[in-house]
Structures are given as structure tokens and as C-alpha cells.
């Protein structure tokens, strides 16, 4: 096992897949010479040349659109939307075109494209550089939405996403790039659509992903000291959701807390919670609780930014109340 940063794990996945398949190429703003706004693609241009690692103009719609065009004609593009906040500019190409083309064409085409992007707060960048917009994308049939938190999961899932014949939105988190984790020396992939139990427990199920997973795990550690034994599940893929793994846990714990940084209203927590109710209301001993982002644009002030997303203490408080 080696220790790699989250960004390095993603970089390694890109490099391995580009070596494996000459049809894989990377395209986006500042991905080549600069190596990506958060450094994820650094070194790739030097290794693979400018034909396969392409700096684009600041044209998100064209990046997504041309990525789609390349995907349906035989390439496997990995495009980068520098901040998920900018995905709105490319959304027509993503939700009207990329997600629907296969279905609209009666299954006569494949769309093997990965849209890499990153979101989330933590750097006091304010409302246009800190959002968590995954629920917009989860609402679009035809896409797959993956949101890994650990270097291990990021690498294995990105490799699968690149090999996938469907469009995959791969959402990273800017505050995870500098976190480290173990990566096997040998090659591996992880299945899209499969949740991961990050901590086993029996008293309550905490469902959390991306940055919120790390906070949920910290909360679980502290709750253990107070005698509450938490099971922590990372769905990893938000669309399609692995509800089976979640239900196995609910059947055991009978209590659920869902944590995410995105705004609460219309967030993925609502969907996950509702699927739990539909699949097993009778297993629940108490109402499902959500610990989510505030329903506000992300403020600049560091204290307000911190208040706008769930913190470890918030998860602890809600979980304790639920278990009392």
C-alpha cells in the first residue's frame, strides 16, 4: 500500500486509463500547461501531449458539447468543469443532450464520457465557487452521478467511470484534494452504483458522502465514546443509488441520519430518506433526520461559511437527540 493525496489518486487513475486506452483524452479549462485549477491533471500534458490533454477556451457549454460529440463518435473524453458552480453554463449540453441522446435515439448510440468537476465550501470563496449541486444532476435520468470522498474510492471509481459507456458526472471536493489515503500498488477498479460501509455499528445509520463523510466519521468516533455505536455508509454513487445496502443497515439500526453539505431543500437527503421510507418504513423507530447545508447562497465570511454547512458537532447533536 502507498499513501496518496486525493488529487494524486485521481491523477493516477487518469494516467493509467490514458495509457490503457488511446481513445481516452482530457479536455477543459487550464488542464494542460497549468495542470488543473486544483492540480489534478498536472504532468499529464507532459506525458501524453497536447493532443490528448487539451486546454480549452473558457467555454463550458462547448467543452461539454464537444465532449459529447467526441464520445458518440468513438472517443472516451474526460472533460473538466473547473467548478461545479459553472456547470449551469453547460447544463443544456449535459441534461438535454448527453443524458438523453441514447434514449432518444432508441439505444443506437453510446455516450462514454466523464464530466469531472469539484464543488463544496471550505475556502471562503463565496457563492459562485462553493456550491454543492449534485441534486440537480441526480434529477436527470440517463446520467450517473459519483461523489467519492477517499483517495481509494476516487481512484477506483474514476477508472470505472472512464470505462463506462454511459455519461458519468464525477464530483470531487476542493477540501478533499489535500487529504491522504491508502492506495494499493496493484491496479483495481470499484463498481459504480455500490455503496460502501465505512464504519460498522448497530445503534444508528449515518449516511454521508464527499466532505460530509469525513465529518460523519469523526462524529461517529466521538459518539462511540458516549456509547452510541454508529454505522456510517457512503453511497459513493448518488445515481443510481444503492438502496439495498442502505436498507440492510436500516434493518439493523432502525434509525437514520443523512448528512450532506448541499442545501437541505430538494437535496439528495430528501431522495435518500424517501427511498428508505418507501422500502421499509416499518423498520424505522424514529423519524429520519437530516443534517444539511443551510438554504442560502454560500456567504464569504468564514464564520458564516462554517455555519452554512454541517459540522461535526451538528452531526453529534442530531444523532444524540435521535438516539436518546
Amino acid at each position: 500500500m502507498k499513501q496518496l493525496f486525493y488529487w494524486q489518486a485521481i491523477n493516477e487513475a487518469l494516467e493509467e486509463e490514458m495509457k490503457r486506452d488511446p481513445n481516452v483524452f482530457v479536455m477543459g479549462e487550464d488542464v494542460a500547461i497549468y495542470g488543473g485549477a486544483y492540480g489534478v491533471t498536472r504532468g499529464l500534458m507532459e506525458k501524453f501531449g497536447e493532443e490528448r490533454v487539451r486546454d480549452t477556451a473558457i467555454s463550458e457549454a462547448a467543452i461539454a458539447g464537444a465532449g459529447l460529440g467526441a464520445a458518440v463518435t468513438g472517443m472516451r473524453p474526460v472533460i473538466e468543469i473547473m467548478y461545479i458552480d459553472f456547470i449551469s453554463i453547460a447544463l443544456d449540453q449535459i441534461y438535454n443532450q448527453m443524458a438523453k441522446i441514447r434514449y432518444m435515439f432508441g439505444g443506437k448510440t453510446k455516450v462514454p464520457i466523464v464530466v469531472r468537476t469539484q464543488g463544496g465550501p471550505g475556502r471562503t470563496l463565496g457563492a459562485h465557487h462553493s456550491q454543492s449541486l449534485e441534486s440537480w444532476l441526480v434529477h436527470v435520468p440517463g446520467l450517473k452521478v459519483v461523489m467519492p470522498a477517499t483517495p481509494y474510492d476516487a481512484k477506483g471509481l474514476l477508472k470505472s467511470a472512464i470505462r463506462e459507456d454511459n455519461p458519468v458526472i464525477f464530483i470531487e471536493h476542493k477540501m478533499l484534494y489535500g487529504t491522504k489515503g491508502e492506495i494499493p500498488e496493484e491496479e483495481y477498479t470499484l463498481p459504480i452504483g455500490k455503496a460502501s460501509i465505512k464504519r460498522e455499528g448497530s445503534d444508528v445509520t449515518i449516511i454521508a458522502y464527499s466532505m460530509a463523510l469525513l465529518k460523519a466519521l469523526k462524529a461517529a468516533e466521538q459518539l462511540q465514546k458516549g456509547g452510541i455505536n454508529c454505522e456510517v455508509i457512503d453511497p459513493l454513487t448518488l445515481l443510481p443509488l444503492d438502496i439495498a445496502t442502505i436498507m440492510e443497515s436500516v434493518k439493523k439500526t432502525h434509525k437514520v441520519v443523512i448528512v450532506h453539505e448541499a442545501c437541505k431543500t430538494g437535496g439528495t437527503g430528501a431522495e435518500i430518506g424517501m427511498q428508505i421510507i418507501e422500502n421499509g418504513f416499518d423498520y424505522l423507530d424514529a423519524p429520519i433526520k437530516r443534517v444539511c447545508g443551510a438554504d442560502v447562497p454560500m456567504p464569504k465570511a468564514p464564520n458564516l461559511e462554517k455555519l452554512a454547512v454541517p459540522q461535526v458537532e451538528d452531526i453529534i447533536k442530531v444523532t444524540k437527540e435521535l438516539c436518546e
Binding site: A62, G65, G67, L68, G69, M75, P77, N96, Q97
Partner: peptide
């Protein structure tokens, strides 16, 4: 809506 598709198909041909 199709400008991207066409341009991307052009990119495939070029590559």
C-alpha cells in the same frame, strides 16, 4: 443544441 455534437465529432476526426 447540436453545435457541440458537430464540433466534438470534428475533434474525433482530427484526433
Amino acid at each position: 443544441g447540436g453545435f457541440g455534437l458537430a464540433t466534438g465529432a470534428g475533434l474525433t476526426i482530427k484526433i
